[in-house]
Simulated assay, not measured.
Amino acid sequence: MAFYQFRKTQLIDADLNSVWNFISNPQNLKVITPDYMGFDITSKNLGNEMYAGMIISYIVKPVLGIPTQWVTEITQIKDKSFFIDEQRIGPYAMWHHQHHIEEQEGGVLMTDLISYQPPLGVLGAVANSLFIRNKLNEIFDYRFKAVEKYFADKQAG
């Protein structure tokens, strides 16, 4: 079974509290996800603050517009430092996503580290080579721009 890691970093021109308040609010997931993914949070009474043990359910359309249920659990959280979400139900055989932030000169360094295993064994490994890894790059490139725009707009006004 193939296992992969995907890492993205971004230096955000903002303070630690602002970045934490943005990334730890589950409602902002839709803001940083491309529209074509058809991303909708289906959890009821989700609130604006994450906590360990929180279950978040979504519908997402990652391939050919086919709706897929995805359920993640926030398994660990350290205020203004990191949180981890893990897939409980969804398209991957395994998904473990670490979100880290660290104050640095010039802003806040945000690092996403995703450890994942596609479904379907060898077919999943082929799918990763053909499109999964490219799709992750595309989604995180979109997120980079969305986060940059969000904080630029906030500073402007």
Rank of each mutant, 00 (worst) to 15 (best):
M110V: 11
F39G: 10
F140I: 05
P34C: 14
K135V: 03
G90H: 09
T42W: 13
N17Q: 11
Y150C: 02
F6L: 07
I66Y: 00
F82D: 08
L11K: 05
Y142N: 07
A14S: 14
Q5P: 06
E103Y: 14
K44H: 10
F83L: 09
G65I: 00
V71T: 06
I139K: 03
G121V: 04
K135A: 13
L16Q: 06
W70K: 03
D15Y: 03
F39N: 09
Q69E: 13
I12R: 00
T9H: 09
A125W: 07
M1C: 04
E138R: 11
M37A: 12
L16R: 05
Q117G: 05
K61R: 11
L11C: 01
M50S: 13
G106D: 01
G38I: 00
M94D: 11
E103S: 09
Q69P: 03
G106T: 01
A152F: 05
N21T: 08
D153H: 08
F6S: 11
P26H: 10
E73D: 08
Q104D: 11
I74W: 09
I59V: 14
E138H: 13
S57K: 13
N21I: 04
S129Y: 02
D141A: 07
F83P: 02
L64I: 06
I23C: 05
D85A: 09
E138D: 15
L113K: 08
Y116H: 00
G47N: 08
L29D: 15
F82H: 14
R133V: 06
P119K: 15
N137P: 02
G65Q: 04
K61W: 02
T75C: 14
A93R: 04
L46H: 13
M110A: 10
D112A: 02
G121I: 04
A125C: 02
I101P: 01
R133Y: 07
E103F: 13
I55P: 00
F6W: 12
A52M: 05
I23P: 11
D40P: 15
Y150K: 05
E102I: 06
